[in-house]
Computed example of a mutant assay.
Amino acid sequence: MSWAPGRPRPPGPGAGGHQVRHRPQRRRPVTPYPRCPGLRAPYSPLGRGFLTGALDRSALGEKDFRRTNPRFAGEANEKIARTVREVADRLGATPAQVALAWVYAQAERLGVAVAAIPGTRSPARPEQNAAALELTLDAEALAALDPLSDQVRGERYTPAHTAEVARG
């Protein structure tokens, strides 16, 4: 049976796959970012696992794009992850919770609503990540975390991956 407007598509690759992820406005109405003025939704708020404290760069699979991602290469950004981990240890939280709590704390500074949408492969993570909403970062934590965003080194993607993302 072919798809017709108004008929829901079945789940699976035939339901849109790549197009759905990169161009939701071409499908059913979704509340896209431009229709939510005053809302900021940070991209990859956990740094693709980098800020969770659980990423082992040496264990990345052969096809894992992070192996060649400039932000995962070398030690330049390790200090950032280490600082997040230190704050988490002091507050009795996970590094992911601290990273997300910092993102949420930016709402007041920016004067807008912030909605972080971290991805996960583990069923336990959404509940852990939601706990970040209850985590209050004290002045010492904010003083340690606030300057970190200016210390990130490396491009978001390799030039080849940038071209691939642009093609959609």
Rank of each mutant, 00 (worst) to 15 (best):
L135Y: 07
L110T: 06
P13Q: 13
E78L: 14
L135F: 03
V87L: 02
V98D: 00
R40G: 01
P32K: 00
Q19R: 15
D146M: 09
E62G: 15
A144V: 04
F50L: 12
A107W: 05
L91T: 04
E134R: 14
R125A: 07
P123S: 09
P123G: 00
T94C: 02
I80P: 00
E62Q: 08
G12W: 13
L91E: 10
F50C: 00
R9T: 05
A101Q: 01
R82G: 01
H161A: 11
Q25Y: 12
T31C: 15
R48I: 02
R26C: 08
V20L: 14
P8Y: 09
L55N: 07
E155A: 10
Y33A: 10
K79M: 05
A41M: 07
A132H: 01
A88I: 08
D138M: 01
D150G: 10
Y43E: 04
E164W: 14
E78I: 08
S58R: 15
R121S: 11
P37C: 11
A73K: 13
P42Y: 01
L133A: 15
L91R: 09
T136Q: 10
S149C: 09
V98W: 06
D64P: 01
R7W: 07
V30K: 11
L142F: 03
T120H: 01
R27S: 08
P13M: 13
P10C: 07
R9C: 08
A131K: 04
